[in-house]
C-alpha cells in the first residue's frame, strides 16, 4: 500500500508539473492573459539562463569533491600542517586550493577532517575560506568581474575573515568538542560513509566511484542551485529594479539588503559572482562585496548543514562573526574608500 502511495506521489507531482506547463502552452497559444504569459516566459528564460551558466561550475565542484573523497589520504595532509596556530589558520585558509569544494561540499569534508584530528583553527579557517579561496570560484569570479577591485577584495577579505575566525577557535584544542555528538556516530562507526581509498581496486573502478559521489553531490547541491535560481528569476521578473534601487542607494541599507539576499538566495559560491553582477550599478560596491564574501560563508543551506554537524554554540560563532566582520568591512569600503 505504502509502495503504491509513494509511486502515485512521485508521478502525480511530476504529471501535475507537465500538465501545468502544457496548459500554459495552450493558454499562451490562445493569446491568454498577456501579462502573465510574458512574465512566465521571462521567468523561464532567466531561470534557465542562470542554471545553464551555473550547472557546469557546480558539476566541476562536485566532481572535484568526489575525486578528493576517493583519492586523497587525509592523514597525510594533516601531517603536513604547521603546528603554530596562525600558520595553521592561514594554511586552512588556502587549503581550498587542494580541496576545491564549494560551501556545499566543505561542511562534510571539514567534519571528516575534524574527526581525523585536524586542529579547530585550521578547520574553521578552511570551512569559511575554501568556498571562495579555490581555483573554481576564483575562475568564475574572474569570468564575471575580471581583475577588478571586486575580484581582489573578495579574495583578500574572505581570507582575512576566515583566518581571524579560525584564530578565535584556536583556544579550543579538541576539535570533537565543536561537533554534535550525533554527527560523530556515523563516522566512527566507519562503514556508513567513509570510503577508505583502497589501492587494490583498479583505477577505473575508483574513478567510477568518484563520479558516482560527484553525481550524488550534484543532485544534493543542485537542488539548492535550482531553487536559488528560480527565486532569483522570480525576483527579477516581478520586482522592478527601481524598488531595489531605492534600497541600494543607502551605504548602510544596501549592505544589509545584499547580505540578506545572499542568505536567502543560498547560491553556490561557484556561481554567485554571476548573480552579483546583476546588481553591479544598482547597489554599492561595499554591498556587492558583502554579498560575495558573506554569502559563501553563511546562507540558508550552509546554516542548515552547520546545524547538522556542529553544536549550537559553534554555529552561533560561525554565523555571527563572519556576519559582523563582513558588514563592518563593507561599511568601511562604502564610507572611506568609495569604490
Amino acid at each position: 500500500m505504502k509502495r503504491l502511495l509513494n509511486f502515485l506521489g512521485v508521478f502525480g507531482v511530476a504529471l501535475l508539473a507537465v500538465i501545468l506547463i502544457l496548459l500554459f502552452q495552450s493558454f499562451m497559444a490562445g493569446g491568454g492573459n498577456l501579462f502573465l504569459v510574458n512574465r512566465f516566459t521571462t521567468f523561464t528564460t532567466i531561470f534557465l539562463g542562470i542554471f545553464i551558466e551555473a550547472a557546469p561550475f557546480l558539476m566541476l565542484g562536485t566532481l572535484a569533491s568526489g575525486v578528493v573523497e576517493i583519492f586523497f589520504n587525509q592523514d597525510a595532509i594533516r601531517r603536513l600542517l604547521p603546528r603554530n596556530a596562525f600558520m595553521g589558520a592561514l594554511a586552512g585558509g588556502i587549503m581550498g586550493f587542494f580541496f576545491p569544494v564549494c560551501e556545499c561540499g566543505v561542511v562534510p569534508l571539514t567534519r571528516r577532517l575534524f574527526t581525523k584530528g585536524l586542529p579547530p583553527a585550521v578547520g574553521v579557517a578552511f570551512l569559511l575560506a575554501s568556498p571562495v579561496i579555490n581555483p573554481i570560484v576564483i575562475a568564475s569570479t574572474y569570468a564575471a568581474f575580471g581583475f577588478s577591485p571586486v575580484f581582489w577584495l573578495r579574495i583578500g577579505l574572505s581570507l582575512f575573515i576566515a583566518v581571524t575566525v579560525g584564530l578565535i577557535f584556536a583556544v579550543q584544542m579538541r576539535p570533537e568538542r565543536l561537533l554534535r555528538p550525533v554527527a560523530l556516530a556515523p563516522i566512527q562507526g566507519g562503514s556508513v560513509d567513509f570510503v577508505e581509498p583502497t589501492p587494490t581496486q583498479p583505477l577505473l573502478s575508483r574513478l567510477q566511484q568518484a563520479l558516482r559521489i560527484g553525481a550524488d553531490e550534484f543532485f544534493e547541491m543542485g537542488r539548492y542551485l535550482i531553487l536559488g535560481s528560480m527565486l532569483a528569476a522570480l525576483m527579477q521578473t516581478f520586482i522592478p529594479q527601481t524598488t531595489l534601487l531605492a534600497l541600494g542607494q543607502g551605504p548602510v541599507l544596501s549592505i544589509i539588503a545584499m547580505m540578506a539576499l545572499a542568505v536567502i538566495l543560498s547560491i553556490c559560491s561557484t556561481v554567485d559572482a554571476f548573480i552579483a553582477l546583476a546588481f553591479v550599478g544598482t547597489f554599492s560596491t561595499g554591498s556587492i562585496l558583502s554579498f560575495l564574501v558573506f554569502g559563501p560563508m553563511v546562507d540558508i543551506k550552509s546554516a542548515l548543514m552547520y546545524l547538522q554537524v556542529f553544536n549550537r554554540k559553534t554555529v552561533i560563532y560561525l554565523i555571527s562573526l563572519p556576519m559582523l566582520m563582513s558588514f563592518l568591512m563593507a561599511l568601511i569600503l562604502n564610507y572611506y574608500v568609495g569604490l
Partner: peptide, 27 residues
C-alpha cells in the same frame, strides 16, 4: 530531490524558447 533537479529539463523542453523581450524592460 529528483523533482527539483528535473525542473530545468521540464522547463527547458516544454516552455517555448524565447529570448528576453520588452516585457523584461519593466523590471
Amino acid at each position: 530531490l529528483l523533482l527539483i533537479v528535473s525542473m530545468p529539463v521540464l522547463f527547458g523542453f516544454l516552455v517555448p524558447v524565447q529570448p528576453l523581450d520588452t516585457s523584461a524592460i519593466e523590471t
